[in-house]
Amino acid sequence: MHVNSSELDALALDFIAGVGSITQRNLIDYFGSPKAVIEASADELQQISGVGKVLSAKIIAGKSEAYKRAEKELLFVEKHQIKIYSYTDKSYPKRLRECPDAPMVFYYRGNADLDSARIVSVVGSRKATPYGRMLCEELIEKLSDYNVLVVSGLAYGIDVCAHKTSLDHRIPTVGVLGHGLHTIYPSVHRNIAVKMLDNGGLLSEFPSDTPADPKHFPQRNRIVAGLADVTVVVEAAKRGGALITAELANSYDRDVCAFPGNIGNEYSAGCNLLIKSHRAHLITSAEDLGYLMDWQPVNRAEKEEEKVAHIRLSDVEQTVYNIVKEGGMISIDGILNQSKVQPNKLPIVLLELEMKGLIIITPGKMYRVTIQGSV
């Protein structure tokens, strides 16, 4: 195994009991690196605010065991192609770095850019109603026009609805977990999680073998809020993780939006309260969110090119698709004349392109390419 010494030091410091993220940040800011913190004497450590004799003794006594644990963790992350992000890394996500209680170390597996230009966190009730799921699906579908990265917590209800709908519309989506990357909780979301690795990713501040403990989920919500420009609460009761995430986003001076719901509905009470108390902007659509954030939709033609680029076409299918695209509206005879495809094979090629969602046939039996969001 190739040992990255800076990662080893960062993990070792993170594994020393009693040294939380805020204390770690203070120590690193003063000493310059995790290694320098670990090598500091008790007297030097006690110069830092919040570090007394007890904590300095823990750091000195615990570093040997912490390094052993760090070496074991590095074996796991190397085996599973997991990337470690440390607060001292230049690649550490810029938005998250701004949060005073951000994790000093976290683990990430995926291909999404955690510094994407536009990041939206979508949260809500685990007991989502049909109304909540409808709002979530419509929001995510329309967000495909804005080139966003969607972040949520892979929990039941609104979270998994946001991830699934993002995948359906080829929007990159990242799940922030309340346990180590050795497992998926809840297990019924494993298939979705696997798909997210191809267009998004999974992220956790907890090392491998950390179980899904209830106390971890409110803790991970600060990452959900901290990674994003804006947090959208789709549906929520007066108490629960979604409101915790909204409060955290407010504390980070990030925008918060909420969909209004029926008065008296338990799972709309939280959203209505956020709006009423001016802790969230009222929105009813992705367009409202785009207006609030001053985001312009991407060019529809550009999106169509991206869509085509991700679909495998045979040489014949590519030729026919290009003819239809250039023709605007073209008959089957026009396609036949330009493509030189055998007459008995052309209808099959056209049907394949229709099935892939790339072209449609109009009532006048003319073909044209599909622009996402139109019929």
Rank of each mutant, 00 (worst) to 15 (best):
residue 6 S to T: 12
residue 6 S to D: 14
residue 8 L to T: 08
residue 8 L to F: 06
residue 9 D to A: 10
residue 15 F to Y: 07
residue 15 F to R: 06
residue 21 S to H: 11
residue 21 S to L: 02
residue 22 I to A: 10
residue 26 N to M: 07
residue 26 N to L: 09
residue 34 P to D: 03
residue 38 I to T: 08
residue 38 I to G: 05
residue 48 I to D: 08
residue 61 A to S: 14
residue 62 G to R: 03
residue 71 E to R: 12
residue 73 E to V: 12
residue 74 L to C: 07
residue 85 Y to S: 04
residue 86 S to Q: 09
residue 88 T to L: 02
residue 92 Y to S: 00
residue 100 P to C: 02
residue 101 D to W: 13
residue 101 D to H: 14
residue 104 M to S: 14
residue 106 F to Y: 15
residue 108 Y to M: 14
residue 116 S to R: 15
residue 117 A to V: 08
residue 124 G to R: 07
residue 129 T to Q: 01
residue 140 I to S: 14
residue 144 S to P: 10
residue 145 D to A: 12
residue 146 Y to G: 08
residue 148 V to T: 13
residue 149 L to S: 13
residue 153 G to E: 07
residue 154 L to K: 11
residue 158 I to P: 05
residue 158 I to A: 03
residue 160 V to T: 15
residue 162 A to K: 07
residue 173 T to P: 08
residue 174 V to F: 10
residue 176 V to F: 10
residue 177 L to C: 13
residue 179 H to M: 11
residue 188 V to M: 11
residue 191 N to I: 07
residue 192 I to M: 12
residue 199 N to P: 08
residue 204 S to H: 12
residue 209 D to G: 06
residue 216 H to G: 12
residue 231 T to K: 00
residue 231 T to E: 00
residue 235 E to Y: 03
residue 235 E to F: 01
residue 237 A to I: 00
residue 242 A to E: 00
residue 252 Y to N: 06
residue 252 Y to I: 01
residue 256 V to R: 06
residue 261 G to C: 01
residue 265 N to L: 00
residue 265 N to A: 12
residue 266 E to Q: 07
residue 272 N to T: 03
residue 273 L to Q: 07
residue 285 S to G: 02
residue 291 Y to S: 10
residue 298 V to Y: 07
residue 305 E to A: 14
residue 313 L to A: 08
residue 313 L to N: 13
residue 315 D to A: 11
residue 317 E to V: 00
residue 319 T to R: 15
residue 321 Y to D: 06
residue 323 I to T: 05
residue 325 K to D: 07
residue 326 E to C: 04
residue 329 M to S: 15
residue 335 I to L: 05
residue 336 L to P: 03
residue 336 L to I: 12
residue 338 Q to R: 15
residue 340 K to F: 14
residue 341 V to Y: 05
residue 345 K to Q: 15
residue 350 L to A: 04
residue 351 L to I: 13
residue 354 E to F: 04
residue 355 M to I: 11
residue 358 L to K: 06
residue 363 P to I: 02
residue 365 K to N: 10
residue 366 M to L: 14
residue 368 R to M: 11
residue 372 Q to M: 10
residue 373 G to L: 09
residue 373 G to I: 07
